[in-house]
Amino acid sequence: MALAGSEVELKVQAMNKKKTTISRSWILLDRDGRDIVLDVDKYAIMRLVEIHARDLRIMDPLLSYPSTILGREKVIVLNLEHIKAIITAEEVLVRDPMDDDVVPVVEELRRRLPLKVSVAGQGQVEEELCVQEGEGGEENEFPFEFRALEVVLEAICSFLDARTRELETAAYPALDELTSKISSRNLDKVRKLKSAMTRLTNRVHKIREELENLLDDDDDMAELYLSRKLAVSSSPSSSSDGPNWHHSPYQGSKIHRSSRGSAATLQGENDVEELEMLLEAYFIQIDGTLNKLTTVREYIDDTEDYINIQHEY
């Protein structure tokens, strides 16, 4: 009885420990690269940005949701491997910013989110922004949400490609060694590498599939144009009677800039070419990573065929 009680107590302690290890930490970065670390629960996040519980659940580390790029009315929800983020038209929230794999992503967001303009004076800054927008400056034309999305896509594609290169580095010598000397040790090493390759292939395939599905649907891509939708909603012709869910810690909002081009935005409401080019670039990259894994798989299959032939004769 005492032993049974101890086992129950240990299980309860393990469950409590597992719960406490789930981080509630988020980091919020604005378009100027400023950041605030937030230690809040999901309800605070739901109040901070317009997001429903079912969408926030996608990023729950305790639940096994597939890789997702989800466009909502005012946010983009990202669940890509270890990177779990919420992007608005002006800010990005990243979960678990102190995680070793997430820290480089946060640093890159800090570096690339701010627009590079002169700060000689506030009036001059506004004037330069207007001039650059009029000249079609690429950096200023690229919406904030896509700059944030690009950082995340680049990070996850590079991360998976690095894991693939590590697997290649280990797999090819191990397979060659098995070919030259068939032993239980070498067979076990190749078996473990094959299992690791299968798991990694599934992870890469999920990212590739999500990008492919997004590229195949113009409506889904249009949902990711948060700045465009914000410009339409803030134009004089649109109704502004609805509730404002978004209460940012940063009060220096620059929403008025997006409204300047609202007339042009209305005309190009269904134009998704800009986003399509962005997604296509990373689709090609992740597809290349998948091809590398396919090549490793074929090499493993060829080696297994060779071993089987050796056993037959």
Rank of each mutant, 00 (worst) to 15 (best):
residue 152 V to Q: 01
residue 188 D to H: 06
residue 166 E to D: 10
residue 158 S to W: 03
residue 195 S to H: 05
residue 11 K to T: 13
residue 133 E to M: 15
residue 36 I to R: 12
residue 73 E to V: 11
residue 190 V to I: 03
residue 249 P to L: 12
residue 10 L to R: 15
residue 310 Q to H: 00
residue 275 L to T: 10
residue 208 R to C: 03
residue 84 K to Q: 15
residue 127 E to V: 06
residue 213 N to P: 03
residue 82 H to Y: 10
residue 193 L to R: 06
residue 241 D to W: 07
residue 14 A to I: 03
residue 74 K to D: 15
residue 303 T to R: 08
residue 98 M to A: 15
residue 77 V to E: 06
residue 29 L to C: 11
residue 121 G to N: 12
residue 85 A to M: 04
residue 260 R to A: 10
residue 17 K to T: 10
residue 205 H to V: 04
residue 2 A to M: 07
residue 144 F to D: 04
residue 75 V to S: 12
residue 85 A to V: 05
residue 27 I to E: 06
residue 98 M to G: 11
residue 33 G to W: 03
residue 140 N to R: 09
residue 222 A to N: 09
residue 120 A to I: 10
residue 18 K to D: 11
residue 252 G to H: 14
residue 53 A to I: 05
residue 55 D to I: 00
residue 308 N to D: 09
residue 293 L to G: 04
residue 277 M to Q: 14
residue 158 S to K: 10
residue 271 D to S: 07
residue 147 R to F: 08
residue 89 A to D: 14
residue 104 P to K: 08
residue 136 G to K: 04
residue 53 A to P: 00
residue 60 D to Y: 08
residue 216 D to W: 03
residue 265 T to I: 10
residue 25 S to W: 00
residue 55 D to K: 06
residue 12 V to W: 01
residue 301 D to E: 09
residue 229 K to Y: 02
residue 88 T to R: 03
residue 125 V to Y: 08
residue 6 S to Y: 05
residue 129 L to G: 02
residue 25 S to L: 04
residue 305 D to R: 14
residue 40 V to K: 09
residue 70 L to Y: 14
residue 255 I to F: 11
residue 223 E to V: 02
residue 110 R to F: 03
residue 142 F to Y: 13
residue 35 D to V: 00
residue 69 I to S: 06
residue 187 L to Q: 12
residue 40 V to D: 04
residue 143 P to M: 01
residue 270 N to M: 13
residue 7 E to Q: 13
residue 227 S to I: 07
residue 153 L to R: 02
residue 22 I to V: 15
residue 64 S to M: 07
residue 83 I to S: 12
residue 259 S to W: 00
residue 79 N to W: 05
residue 35 D to K: 05
residue 46 M to I: 05
residue 107 E to A: 14
residue 181 K to P: 00
residue 194 K to H: 11
residue 133 E to G: 06
residue 223 E to N: 15
residue 198 T to G: 02
residue 60 D to T: 04
residue 221 M to Y: 06
residue 119 V to T: 10
residue 262 S to K: 05
residue 168 E to R: 07
residue 226 L to R: 04
residue 171 A to R: 00
residue 203 R to A: 08
residue 148 A to P: 05
residue 16 N to H: 11
residue 89 A to I: 01
residue 216 D to C: 10
residue 65 Y to S: 13
residue 85 A to I: 02
residue 206 K to D: 13
residue 264 A to R: 11
residue 165 R to E: 09
residue 159 F to Y: 13
residue 310 Q to P: 00
residue 56 L to Y: 07
residue 13 Q to A: 15
residue 128 E to G: 01
residue 82 H to W: 08
residue 305 D to Y: 08
residue 200 L to T: 01
residue 240 S to K: 15
residue 276 E to M: 07
residue 31 R to K: 09
residue 240 S to Y: 05
residue 198 T to K: 13
residue 175 L to F: 08
